[in-house]
């Protein structure tokens, strides 16, 4: 047993983080928020880097990696707030032409009747007839809603969404800690106050717990373990975003600070597939 990341996995994480920092740094993120559009050039570059073909077998022109690697990559995407139907397009690689290469944007109807990025997508998987637009809470995830018979949540989709949540949880921890060290009040950094310090410690605990759960679920592929990982990851992302906002004070309530973007995305991912009550029921059913 060695539950640490392998050298290859560590390199993969570093590579993806560097790619996203270079290609989708803070300026690009804010430009996307302002335009509200999906950057097809970036989508293609992600395709070229193997982002969508990650789990496609090498024989089919893919990268040939497994669910654990996909989880690591999606965690980085979550940390960077990379927009677009990433999980659906990755799923479509190998079946929908152009998906693997980043030439096609593929979205899907979620088990909860939500369709992210419908208008930007080339292909919508699932029963999308009669979809009505919503005024999405997340400026970087346009949403449609459908009712009727909905597809069951696929465990892999649930897990990869949970991985994105871990990315948000980790980003929020880092951002809160950085702010707490920099910002001074009463003549010292606010991070010297226990009330602030303990919020940050709690954020790290939630992140580490959720990350261990997501990584293990990627290794075992067990449905109940995946449901549990989603439950913990949703909680880590949402609670950490709120605490991060609190640590930022008035600045945290502004449009200018990025923390609201993480909170809103975390809400979207939490509601998109296997939301809390359902996940908890699924874990309980396995007891």
């Amino acid at each position: 047993m060695d539950f640490r990341l392998s050298q290859d996995q560590t390199d993969l994480v570093r590579g993806v983080r560097e790619l996203l920092a270079g290609r989708f740094g803070r300026d690009a993120l804010r430009a996307s928020v302002d335009s509200g559009a999906l950057d097809r050039g970036l989508w293609k570059e992600l395709g070229d880097a193997g982002f969508f073909a990650l789990r496609l077998p090498e024989a089919d022109g893919g990268v040939g990696l497994g669910l654990p690697e996909a989880v690591l990559v999606l965690e980085e995407a979550g940390r960077a707030l990379l927009p677009g139907p990433l999980v659906a397009t990755q799923r479509a690689a190998g079946t929908v032409p152009g998906a693997a290469e980043g030439l096609a944007v593929v979205t899907e109807v979620s088990s909860e009747g939500l369709i992210p990025w419908r208008d930007a997508a080339d292909v919508v998987l699932g029963p999308a007839e009669g979809a009505v637009p919503m005024r999405s809470v997340d400026p970087l995830t346009p949403l449609h809603r459908v009712s009727g018979t909905l597809p069951a949540a696929r465990p892999e989709t649930v897990l990869l969404t949970a991985a994105e949540q871990v990315g948000t949880a980790a980003w929020c921890t880092d951002a809160a800690v950085a702010h707490a060290r920099r910002r001074e009040q009463f003549g010292r950094p606010i991070g010297a106050f226990q009330a602030v310090k303990h919020l940050c410690a709690g954020m790290l605990v939630r992140t580490e717990l959720a990350r261990a759960a997501v990584h293990a679920a990627a290794v075992t592929g067990d449905a109940a373990e995946i449901a549990g990982a989603k439950l913990l990851a949703d909680d880590a992302a949402v609670a950490n975003a709120r605490d991060c906002l609190q640590v930022h004070g008035g600045m945290g309530f502004t449009w200018e600070a990025d923390v609201h973007l993480h909170l809103k995305r975390a809400w979207v991912r939490a509601a998109l597939v296997l939301p809390g009550a359902r996940a908890a029921e699924e874990v309980a059913a396995a007891l």
Binding site: M1, D2, F3, R4, E208, L209, A210, A212, A213, H215, A216, E225, A227, G228, A229, L231, L232, G276, A277, A279, A280, E281, E282, V283, A284, A285, A286, L287
Partner: peptide, 30 residues
């Protein structure tokens, strides 16, 4: 349902704690 979900949430947490132990042990081992 509230009780079931409460137990489900606790089960998810203890499962994750077990995984955290495996990670800590892996680190100590290495």
């Amino acid at each position: 349902p509230a009780l079931r979900r409460r137990l489900g949430g606790l089960a998810a947490g203890f499962q994750a704690l077990w995984r955290l132990i495996q990670r800590n042990v892996s680190e100590a081992q290495a």
